[in-house]
Design a protein around this nucleic acid. Sequence first.
RNA 1: GCCGCGUUGGUCAAGGGGUUAAGACGCCUCCCUUUCACGGAGGAAUCACGGGUUCGAAUCCCGUACGUGGUACCA
Length: 510
Amino acid sequence: MVEKNVRVRFAPSPTGGLHLGGVRTVLYNYLFARKNGGKFIVRIEDTDQTRFVEGAEKYIFDCLQWCGIVPDESPVHGGNFGPYRQSERKSLYRKYAEELVEKGFAYYAFDTTADLEKMRADLRTAENPSPQYDGTVRMAMKNSLTISPAEVTELLNKGTLHVIRIKMPENETISFVDMIHGEVSFNSSLVDDKVLLKADGMPTYHLAVVADDYLMEITHAFRGEEWLSSAPVHILLWKYLFGSEHMPQWAHLPLILGPSGKLSKRDGAKYGFPVFAMNWVDHKTNELTEGFKEKGFLSQAFINMLAVLGWNDGSEQEIFSMEELIDKFSIERVHKGGAKFDFEKAKWYNQEWIKKLPVASYAALAKEVFNAKSIAIDDEIYFLKVLELVKDRCTLLTDFYDQAHYFYVPPTVYDAASVKPKWDEGKAGFFREYSHRLLETAQLEQLPMAVFETIFKDLASETNIKLGELQMIFRVMLVGSKTGPGVFVIAETIGRDATVERIENALSTF
RNA sequence: GCCGCGUUGGUCAAGGGGUUAAGACGCCUCCCUUUCACGGAGGAAUCACGGGUUCGAAUCCCGUACGUGGUACCA
């Protein structure tokens, strides 16, 4: 079912970073747009100038780029429906708010912050802990519904600070069909008179989404479930301003939860796993929170893991590339319930992608890991061989250092606990003779693995020492610990000279 | 408090009137490997609760509980 002229938008606020839920929202928007041959639009919701932070918008686009999500229209990609930043469209909104006032669907409110606080304080009870500015109180407030038109005009002319609020109708059922939840309905009496235009002339999200979605000809709007409660306001605004028939189709995506309830992006550190796509620096506290990218995740794994957190295609498939996701995604199969994020499973996806992808595709990233540990990588061929050898035992990109550093740096500490009980003069003699024979081989530097192995095994049977114990010791000599791929492959890789050198080092240490 | 949304193993989940209730992560056992992994074979573990409807309910209906979101001149 391919719809024509599909236009899907993602509207992030640039100040909060891009966390798990945010990335999944973009992803689903993007998949839906691509799947239906439509346009994917990114519009920046920098509604409140004072909260706009330099660099925060760039952060969002950096994350999208890392994830492999390319917008068709955005403040940086251009497009015919710009500007794509809310702060640059400020002048557009007022007329819609005024239009609503004229039609009787909204009104001017002159209440000061103190007035509002007083109203809330007066009305607050145990049963009603947060009184709303709604149908039951608006006639007791200072607004164009309660004062004379002349007085309103006068206040306006004097430039009195005011907002424009929607006038929620009394006892109407507002319902709409959500692409995930099905029909959802609200009683209008229970919804408050939301501010549409703030005293500083900026629209609130409510007015801005509706106006922008209309102006940008958006056909589908997917957002987090935290917006479901304000959907009735948006539904009404569409009806009053542009006609319900032009309203985009909504889908409210389930929330991503943390190990114990909601996933808060503020203290991501407390979970022991990242919550942001990339490193995020809070502009207020200057605190850095590690991102999935920096933690050692491949973007393919990150996207894969997020896509299937709350969605699956009904088959047993777990690993999906972006192309497969675009092919198989359907918004109807997105879950209704929130999903708890499981870092263990996320790591498993990364491990699968490390195994699946050719090492060359992430060699540059792995190289950074080694560089960070002051190991220079100059022989590309050798590096690829090393990566290939250890990729099966890495779950994060950062594991490559732990799993492969000994291919570059000889061990300095040995697993003495394993070697000591097995170590005796006979074995010392074995290794002296082994390195002697290695050096005597006719071949030059590039000794093949089979040669290391044959000499080793022949000598073992000559000396009548248990092969297994010898291999374990040999491994500790080369690696320092009892880990890694086959000993003889390691010997072959680091080469004859390095092997002999490490044997001698160990011989003098044990 | 009120309103909205939700609820299948510890986690992600398939299944939407009749199934031995898939699969994956994690955990455990064994095999492979005289290393660590990878791989392979097994195992423990689930329909939130209570009422209906029905010959029959994880599936449909109603309650309750629990979770979660909203209840701002934040998004």
